[in-house]
Simulated scan of single mutants.
Amino acid sequence: MSPPLALDIDGTLTSSAGGIDPRAFEALRGWDAPVVLATGKAFPYPVALCHFMDLPERVIAENGGVVYADDEVTVTVPDADRPREAAQAFVDRGGDLGWGAADTVNRWRETEVAVRRDADDALLRAVAEEFGLDVVDTGYAYHLKLPGVEKGEGLRAVAATLGLDPAAFVAVGDSENDVSTFEVAGESFAVANADDRARAAADRVTDGAHMDGTLEALAARRDR
């Protein structure tokens, strides 16, 4: 039997252009073990992706801030107001979150705030330090979040809900926010487009990038 999977989305299940690679649908529907989508995106996004992929809704969202499996939703952040307060301070001091008036990136976000990567990085990090927050660069956005909120802790929570050992999971990702997942999972793959921290933390780096790399990782584990 195949091992359970913990998969990042952006840069991992996507093409180089950024949209979901259609090959992900067939590959994951046919996987004969639990699949968990672990992302920095707001909670509704991975839930919707599970729905359209016809997968059970098993989700680690907002870099571990929200966890969902077997009809249990857990918000792991004790002080969700602090990132929002820091984001407002950033804006008040001349910063721009960068998503426009509707801000659908943060509209449904519960535990952190995402900021476009072309924002004033120095100002953002200064505000984050003042509020005791971390800034994580996922390659898609900067994330203002509380220290200790990690995808890896989300994987521990999902595994416990599913009655599985976290070390049974194979993780695939591409960014520094996947490092904690790699540390918790029993085996990890960084796709070829991964940043330096993810590459250094992974057990293996694939030859292929984006979905090509993910398919390479899945083939390696299915063939064992």
Rank of each mutant, 00 (worst) to 15 (best):
D207K: 13
T181L: 06
F182Q: 12
A87G: 01
D165L: 12
P78G: 05
A168P: 01
V191W: 00
T214F: 14
A69R: 02
F43N: 07
A48C: 05
A128R: 00
L146I: 04
G173V: 00
L164M: 13
L215N: 01
E62T: 05
A6W: 03
D92P: 10
R224L: 13
G208E: 07
E150T: 15
A201D: 02
D137T: 10
A38R: 02
A24I: 08
V170K: 01
V179L: 06
P46E: 12
E153A: 13
R224A: 14
G208A: 07
P166V: 05
D212F: 07
L146W: 02
A194E: 01
A102I: 13
C50T: 08
D54W: 01
E26K: 14
V66F: 01
T214L: 15
T14L: 08
G186W: 09
E110T: 03
D10S: 00
R222L: 13
F43G: 04
W99I: 01
R109L: 06
T181Q: 03
V170Q: 02
E129Y: 07
L97I: 10
D79W: 11
T161S: 10
L155H: 11
A102M: 14
V115P: 13
F52C: 10
T74K: 08
P56S: 05
M211T: 06
R82C: 02
T214G: 11
T138C: 05
T39E: 10
A141F: 05
V105K: 09
T111S: 07
A17E: 15
D79L: 10
A126D: 15
Y45L: 14
D196W: 11
A119M: 14
K41L: 14
A126T: 14
G208V: 08
G152L: 09
Q88E: 15
L13N: 01
D174I: 12
R116W: 05
A6S: 15
V135Q: 09
E130Q: 15
R204V: 15
V59T: 07
F131S: 07
L146E: 15
A219R: 14
E57A: 09
A17Y: 13
D195S: 08
L144F: 10
D8K: 00
D195P: 03
E62A: 04
N177L: 11
A42F: 01
L144P: 06
E57M: 12
L146H: 06
G152K: 08
L37P: 09
L123D: 06
P34S: 01
V172Q: 11
L55A: 08
L7S: 12
K145D: 01
E216I: 03
F25D: 11
R222V: 03
G186I: 08
L49K: 12
F182D: 06
P46M: 10
T111Y: 09
V158K: 02
R109V: 04
K41N: 15
D174L: 08
F189Q: 03
A101C: 05
A159Y: 05
A48W: 07
G173R: 00
V75Y: 07
P34V: 07
D96Y: 13
D165I: 04
